[in-house]
Amino acid sequence: MTRIQSLLELIDQTGARCRLFDLGRRVAKLSSTTFARVEQGRIPYPQPYLHHAWVGLLLWHPDSPQRNAVWFLKLPLDEQGFLVQAVRDDLLHRLMQNIGGLVEDGNDALKDNPFSFKPDDEKMALFHAHAGLVLRQSASRYYEYAQHYFAGQLAPENWVNLGYQGIADLVVRLEQGRNEALLTDAIGWLPAEPLGALCRALEHVEPGHRLLQALEPRLDSALACDRDSDGGLLAALVRAVSNSPSQSLRKALLQRVLASPRALEAEVIVALATRCCESLKDPELLQPFLERLAAGEAGQAGFSRVLADLMFMPSLRGPIMAALRNPERSETLSRAIGEMFGQGMGEG
Score class of each variant (00 low, 15 high):
32 S>Q: 13
109 A>Q: 01
286 L>I: 14
121 D>H: 14
111 K>N: 13
152 G>T: 13
153 Q>Y: 14
313 M>W: 08
256 R>V: 01
328 E>F: 06
340 M>Q: 12
125 A>H: 01
134 V>H: 00
311 M>A: 00
149 Y>A: 07
33 T>Q: 13
247 Q>T: 15
159 W>Y: 13
18 C>H: 10
166 G>T: 00
297 E>C: 10
93 H>P: 12
49 Y>P: 09
48 P>W: 06
212 L>N: 07
278 E>M: 09
73 L>A: 06
171 V>T: 06
309 D>K: 02
284 E>W: 05
76 P>S: 10
248 S>N: 10
294 A>S: 03
182 L>S: 04
260 S>K: 03
70 V>G: 11
338 G>I: 14
218 R>I: 04
127 F>Q: 03
287 Q>D: 05
127 F>I: 08
156 P>R: 11
229 S>K: 05
320 I>F: 10
88 R>C: 15
135 L>P: 00
116 S>N: 06
160 V>N: 13
205 V>Y: 08
291 E>R: 00
26 R>Y: 00
317 R>A: 11
276 C>R: 08
188 G>N: 11
294 A>P: 10
96 M>H: 07
207 P>A: 02
197 A>P: 08
177 G>W: 05
270 V>Q: 07
162 L>T: 05
140 S>M: 01
30 L>H: 14
136 R>A: 08
28 A>T: 13
255 Q>P: 01
41 G>A: 10
233 L>A: 12
195 L>M: 11
83 L>W: 05
134 V>C: 03
